[in-house]
Design a protein around this nucleic acid. Structure first.
Lengths: 361, 361
DNA sequence: CTGTTAGCGCGTTCAG
DNA sequence: CTGAACGCGCTAACAG
């Protein structure tokens, strides 16, 4: 397709194609002058080697694939951007696609990758199993998302993040905590859904450590299965249910920032003040979270080091031929981002002297 | 690279490679039985044609490229998702990249596309000029973003959207309007920056139509050039400046939803109520905008028809060999989404009987 | 109806 | 030091 090829350069210089090939590869066996002439003519004509021909000849494509699930979510988008930078930094081209682009989800995405002869694939927040890739002998690494059979995974230490966040909230004097979370729609095996189960574990662990008793640390598992409604909406509806109760928590820990944003809206609607009446937290530290009506206290994942590590592992697999890390899981530490949605430290609220509780009828 | 090729199938069936090729292509000149046998053996061995070899032979790659600028922004991400679906629906593979992935911005992105022999490129919200593609003879279409020399563009009718929104706000009784907008950092020619100038025009036009006089429709052009700060932050800071004034507007129209969200936070900080004291609007109708503390009145672009149209035009260019639409601009209508941030219709506020003005000292 | 042959652009080997 | 020749996997024109 590129109209200017080695043959053309050769003809214009009155030499043979293979000489051009050798000169372009800077093989020392050619006279320096010849090499210079070839290079000059090549750049003058705007020569670019035909990648596809190179691939056919060399066997390796120089492509690394990236498949995201739900790249429209901000966190996923941030991750993929960092992966891309890392891939390019290592001299590869990136072929990216989104599983949601296709009707039949993961199947087509895998075929695209296989067809393009990618040397490896980074799965960004996968929600399906992409076993077809491994069966085709392509090295794979998962960056967050669900666990992939036989592939290493780099992910955040959700448990530690939730643990630290819970302790922070308790440290501010809150005593009736609720964790708002949701099982994913797909299969619920523990390994795949670590991001749910670790949130719960970290939450309960921190509560126990702080001496919170029965009913002081409640886990609310929402089973909201309408795939049409967006994440904010789910958070809003879930929070409404909590606000309808007789006895309300004084802190609600949401499983992500979108939920928390929706929950905030529900509070506002109901006349419940944040953080005075109820403390609210998110997870993931989205860009918007610091700039809403109530800046969110949340947990940040180390997305940059995570992306770096994932690509590093993949390249290791490609080079060492699968010899690197077989079924390893690398957990990287989260950090609590303190903003305004939990307020300042406060005493155990005295139900008699404290007039701030429950403004709604 | 794919270890199973036509040659292998041929050997196993005791026929020649070219027969296999013909049978796989379903050429009617072969016996039905032969074709069936070949197809069966092919699928049994998991044969997939080597795309790169096909490309070399046929000249066409079956790839369509997509370059986004700032794919981490939600609107851009939504657009690219729709483009992807459209591209696949037309039997092409999508090769996508983000100009921000590379250090040197557009240059590498173009090279990637050229190297991959894409047959055309959709530019999603481009902020640079991607002339290198056109120079390489690759058909291009821009979806929103800045105008590309010699390439058709599909974009929203920003002017009409802003016009309708302004009329809506005025219709609710607001009389001191401010439009908050910003010139992009790059070159400021009108054609490229229509999304700024059309906002201004639509705003002023609607104001004039409604009989608003001097000082009742103000355009505030922020020149905030710190590339580090995010969009929400810019909106917040810009709004703060307005709130510091002696005489404040009673409606602030922000140039996008992120700005409006940041502006909302600034109001909250300053004790200014939305919509009671100040009406606030956004633009783009992001997912979050309906679920914040104050659901945003905003303008929705018809992103789905836009994506469809852009791909349709590109395919036309590819097929008809540049003959389709040379330097056409297709504008598609926007729709005002009414939520809560402008409140209900109200009388001209009476400064004496109305106690709601300006709570801050 | 089937097989032989040529060549897409590149990199490598082997003669000269 | 240089060029001729080959083959990666595939398609298409042509010969049997």
């Amino acid at each position: 397709m590129p109209s200017v090829n080695q043959h053309l350069i050769a003809r214009r210089l009155g030499i043979s194609q293979s000489t051009v090939a050798g000169a372009l590869a800077n093989q020392p066996r050619f006279r320096l002058e010849t090499r210079k002439r070839v290079l000059a003519e090549a750049s003058r004509l705007g020569y670019r080697p035909h990648r596809f021909a190179q691939v056919m000849r060399q066997g390796r494509s120089g492509f690394i694939g990236m498949i995201q699930c739900a790249g429209h979510m901000q966190l996923s988008a941030q991750r993929s951007q960092l992966v891309a930078r890392e891939v390019h930094g290592n001299g590869y081209q990136l072929l990216s696609s989104d599983a949601f682009w296709f009707g039949d989800e993961e199947k087509t995405a895998c075929e695209v990758m296989i067809d393009a002869c990618v040397e490896g694939v980074v799965l960004v927040s996968p929600t399906f199993s992409f076993d077809a890739l491994r069966q085709a002998g392509i090295p794979v690494v998962a960056l967050s998302g669900s666990r992939q059979p036989g592939a290493p995974q780099v992910r955040a230490n959700i448990r530690q993040g939730m643990h630290d966040l819970t302790r922070h909230v308790i440290g501010l004097g809150r005593r009736r905590l609720a964790l708002l979370t949701q099982w994913p729609l797909g299969p619920r095996d523990e390994a795949a859904c670590y991001y749910v189960s670790e949130r719960i574990e970290g939450f309960l662990e921190a509560s126990r450590e702080s001496g919170l008793g029965e009913g002081q640390a409640e886990v609310c598992i929402e089973d909201y299965s309408d795939p049409e409604s967006n994440t904010y909406q789910v958070g809003k509806i879930s929070m409404r249910k909590i606000l309808e109760r007789k006895r309300q928590p004084d802190a609600v820990l949401c499983s992500n920032d979108e939920w928390a944003t929706g929950a905030l809206a529900a509070c506002k609607e109901a006349g419940v003040r944040v953080p005075e009446d109820i403390a609210l937290t998110g997870f993931d530290n989205l860009l918007a979270s610091g700039y809403g009506a109530v800046p969110l206290t949340t947990v940040a994942q180390p997305i940059e080091p995570m992306a770096k590590k994932a690509v590093e592992i993949l390249l290791g697999q490609i080079r060492n031929g699968e010899g690197a890390s077989p079924r390893k899981v690398i957990k990287m530490p989260c950090e609590v981002i303190v903003r305004h949605s939990c307020g300042s430290p406060r005493q155990e609220p005295d139900p008699i002297t404290d007039p701030t509780r429950r403004m709604r009828s």
